[in-house]
Amino acid sequence: MNNIGKNSFDIGRMDALAAGDSLLHRLDPRAKLITTLVFIVAVVSFDKYALSAILPFFLYPIALISLGGLPYNYLLKKVLIVSPFAILIGVFNPLLDREILFHIGSVGISGGFVSFLSILLRFVLTVTAALILISLTGFNAVCESMRKFGVPKPFIVQLLFFYRYLFVMTDEADRMVRARSLRTFNSGTMSFRIFISLIGHLLLRTLDRAERIYRAMCCRGFDGHFYLIRSMKIRVPEIIFMSGWVSLFVLFRCTNVPLHLGTLITGIVP
């Protein structure tokens, strides 16, 4: 059965989540943005065979998801949707890099396989962190804090518009696909010709809409500037949140915590 009536993305749910009222939700968006950026940089900067050293970083998403009351399943599904990109990047590593790094029992584990796993770990961590940031803050607040940090306005405006009309466009695409499948009696595959025509129509409709929106903006005196009324304040909780996490990230990045823990427990010095 084809999911004719189902919206494929359901990104809107993140906004609903962002409207929550936990301690984490109430933090200044800038604090969360900086912490997330530091987190991502720390995770990405490991060398390509790092595996165990990355593991402690899972503390951050797990802590935030539990404290912020976010749904694990929903976020996991979103991560899975984009996972093909990461898999595609790393999937050939085991073929290209066959040097054996270590053995588990009698099975030799090649460097390529380790780096592939490492890519997947990093991917899950960074994407989850970004999703958590948006689910706890809301896309608009994230954009607004980027603006406060001096990211150029045209870039922010593009992002805001992209986000605002993403919903309108997916709706439109959904309606077109539904209209098609209702007249093809769910025969499954779409021929290339029809696909091209659908995409073409979507583009034309988008252009038409862009023009109408621009007109509506002009009617209300748009002159290339966006003004927003917002107040943001960095207070003690923000500083504690940021400094706490950032120092943890530095610790995790500079020392291999699982290795030291293992050494401590087994008493074997490598």
Binding site: F139, N140, C143, L160, F161, Y163, R164, Y165, V168, R209, R212, I213, R215, A216, M217, R220, G221, F222, D223, H225, Y227, L228, I229
Partner: peptide, 20 residues
């Protein structure tokens, strides 16, 4: 949908007055 393009209803209504 053509007329409401700002992130929130408040921002949208404020768009005109701020521009003027």
């Amino acid at each position: 949908d053509d007329q409401l393009f700002m992130p929130t209803v408040f921002d949208d209504v404020a768009f005109g007055p701020l521009n003027f």
